[in-house]
């Protein structure tokens, strides 16, 4: 994690409009291997749009996104979806678990999509659920879980494939403060243990304090970068 090494993921001068709203107007951010980077800023400042562009979920109108040697903003949709399956994990505020599936099957799904057998995928899903303290809820469906349990399931789902980057957009936004602290502790310690980098979008300073450093967005631009690189 030094300023001299190449970033793992780099967004430069991103421009993105949603209809007539300019969400990003020249935003740049660099994520280094293994670091936890917080993206903060007031509501509407473009944090989620930046995360979506860096995760290859949205294509920017201008600027570039490099993941190692690859240009994400111009590469094919097939290449992007393969990358999202193997190298990226996502945790959002809510909604990423499929309501019809049990927690185990939700967590096993990304592995199965990447070609792992159902039996093996379910076994590994079970290990991750155990690690996040929800092993006893493995057969429950998302609707039967508390917010904190569902979010732990989402963490397991994001990490089960061994991603190099975890994208987390307000991962504690729907939780009370104690559950939020626990989810953050687990997210950061699991990412550190596996060497994954985390791009953490949050408007909450207490959540941002889990990161190694912070960039702050204002009106679609990165205003300040600080913290140890």
């Amino acid at each position: 994690m030094s300023a001299t090494t190449e970033p793992l993921l780099a967004a430069r001068d991103l421009v993105k409009a949603h209809g007539r709203t300019d969400a990003l107007r020249g935003a740049s951010a660099e994520l280094h291997a293994g670091e936890v980077l917080a993206v903060t800023g007031p509501s509407g400042s473009g944090k989620s749009t930046l995360l979506h562009c860096m995760a290859g979920i949205l294509r920017p109108d201008g600027g570039s996104v490099h993941y190692e040697g690859l240009r994400l903003d111009t590469c094919t949709e097939d290449r992007l979806s393969a990358l999202r399956r193997t190298d990226f994990g996502v945790v959002f505020q809510f909604g990423q678990l499929i309501p019809e599936l049990t927690l185990t099957d939700n967590v096993a799904l990304p592995l199965m999509l990447a070609g792992t057998s159902r039996r093996e995928a379910r076994a590994r899903a079970g290990e991750w659920l155990g690690r996040f303290g929800v092993g006893d809820r493995a057969d429950a469906r998302p609707g039967e879980l508390s917010g904190g349990q569902a979010q732990r399931g989402a963490l397991a789902r994001a990490l089960v494939t061994g991603p190099r980057v975890v994208f987390a957009d307000e991962p504690t936004g729907a939780l009370d403060s104690l559950a939020g602290e626990q989810v953050m502790t687990e997210l950061v310690s699991a990412a550190r243990a596996s060497g994954a980098a985390v791009l953490l979008v949050t408007h909450d300073a207490r959540v941002a304090a889990y990161a190694d450093r912070e960039i702050r967005l204002a009106d679609g631009r990165a205003a300040v970068t600080e913290g140890a690189v």
């Binding site: 502790t185 950061v188 310690s189 300073a205 207490r206 941002a208 304090a209 889990y210 990161a211 190694d212 912070e214 300040v224 600080e226 913290g227």
Partner: peptide, 18 residues
């Protein structure tokens, strides 16, 4: 604000140390 955030990161490290 930066000084406060730096202190908050330190305190978060202290409390999340295994």
């Amino acid at each position: 604000r930066d000084a406060h955030m730096a202190r908050m990161r330190e305190l978060t490290k202290v409390k999340t140390t295994p």
